[in-house]
């Protein structure tokens, strides 16, 4: 999976009926330091990710492995909303409403 940021959503009225009921978000891929990579995907949101949320998305046929996207022409799915992540023991990102005061980088 890749880390990404929800930067927008896609609305299309004329589309294949197999994807009619799905919500599409535009996700910009980020590196492990939270810096944007030059890569965007349109991913189906399966966990209720909102604008500006940092998420994980899966690509390829793995994206069809949810009840929402099973058997549909989908190759990217947001499968988690990130609370925090650390690299080499250093906290890189924590969602602002997460009480990070005194939160030590321990076993998640």
């Amino acid at each position: 999976m890749f880390i990404g940021k929800v930067v927008g959503s896609v609305v299309s009225t004329v589309k294949d009926e197999k994807v009619a009921s799905l919500r599409f978000q535009v996700v910009q891929e980020l590196d492990e330091h939270g810096k944007p990579r030059n890569k965007y995907v349109v991913a189906v949101d399966t966990v209720g990710a909102g604008q500006d949320d940092l998420v994980l998305y899966a690509s390829g046929s793995s994206a069809r492995q949810t009840t929402l996207t099973d058997g549909r022409p989908i190759d990217a799915a947001i499968m988690a909303v990130i609370d925090s992540w650390d690299v080499n023991g250093t906290l890189v990102y924590a969602k602002e409403d997460l009480d990070t005061v005194g939160w030590t980088v321990g076993e998640p």
């Binding site: 988690a80 909303v81 992540w85």
Partner: peptide
């Protein structure tokens, strides 16, 4: 392995 991600809201 260089890091860990915490994500409580995730796919079933």
């Amino acid at each position: 392995v260089i890091g860990r991600v915490v994500a409580t809201r995730r796919s079933a």
